[in-house]
């Protein structure tokens, strides 16, 4: 009986790759997010340098946003193809705790995504979606709220560009840090 149990245990331990709590390292996402970082940082600095000139307007640069957005869409698609599509479960757990601590001070945008049935791959997808949100916010500022020159034209003001990059880079860094931790 004991021998049979040990044998069964050995088969289980030998054949099972172990319980996976996080999605596996993905070189394509690791490299892709670094490329996106370079692309976005170069673009925003470049556009801020020509703020107030025709080549710095949103209209002159809208296609460049499309290119960057497409790059992120490819990474999101790759990540989401591995997930169950049920969201990032652990994010919801953390938010429960944070919501309890911050109570009414919790920002409206900070709500749990997904549900209790979420999976580890869903968290990777969420991190990439947040980077895409940041790009969308920069696009919105460029198209609608920042104005330069006389008569005023759409632009990315140098001060805006500096602030927006620092913040967007935090979201990009979050993806890079997680992938680097899996790789090491």
């Amino acid at each position: 009986m004991i021998r049979a149990l040990l044998l069964a245990g050995a088969v289980v331990l030998g054949g099972c790759p172990g319980t996976s709590l996080v999605s596996p390292y993905d070189e394509a996402i690791d490299k892709g997010i670094v490329e996106f970082y370079e692309q976005l940082n170069w673009f925003v600095k470049d556009v801020a340098d020509v703020a107030g000139k025709p080549e710095g307007t949103y209209e002159a640069n809208s296609k460049r946003y499309n290119v960057m957005e497409t790059k992120l869409d490819v990474l999101i698609l790759r990540s989401s193809s591995r997930s169950l599509g049920t969201g990032c479960r652990l994010e919801a757990k953390v938010y429960e705790k944070v919501a309890g601590l911050l109570a009414s001070n919790l920002p409206a945008d900070m709500k749990p995504q997904g549900d209790a049935a979420g999976d580890a791959n869903g968290c990777n997808t969420r991190l990439l979606e947040l980077v895409k949100q940041q790009l969308g916010f920069i696009r919105e500022i460029h198209a609608k709220t920042d104005k330069c020159g006389t008569p005023p034209v759409s632009c990315l003001r140098p001060a805006t560009a500096a602030s927006a990059l620092k913040i967007a880079n935090q979201s990009i860094n979050a993806v890079a840090v997680v992938e680097a931790a899996k790789r090491n």
């Binding site: 709590l21 996080v22 990032c88 652990l90 994010e91 757990k93 953390v94 938010y95 944070v98 920002p107 945008d109 900070m110 580890a120 968290c123 990777n124 969420r126 991190l127 947040l130 980077v131 949100q133 940041q134 916010f137 920069i138 919105e140 500022i141 609608k144 709220t145 920042d146 104005k147 003001r157 001060a159 805006t160 602030s163 927006a164 913040i167 967007a168 935090q170 979201s171 979050a174 993806v175 840090v177 997680v178 931790a181």
Partner: peptide
């Protein structure tokens, strides 16, 4: 920059906070 731009940048900061929280969870895991 204008208050309107400031508002969007604050939204960006909330998004970045979510990124950090999710990444922190992942690093724990």
């Amino acid at each position: 920059y204008s208050p309107e731009t400031g508002k969007i940048l604050m939204k960006m900061q909330r998004t970045a906070a979510e990124s950090v929280l999710v990444a922190t969870t992942q690093l724990n895991l």
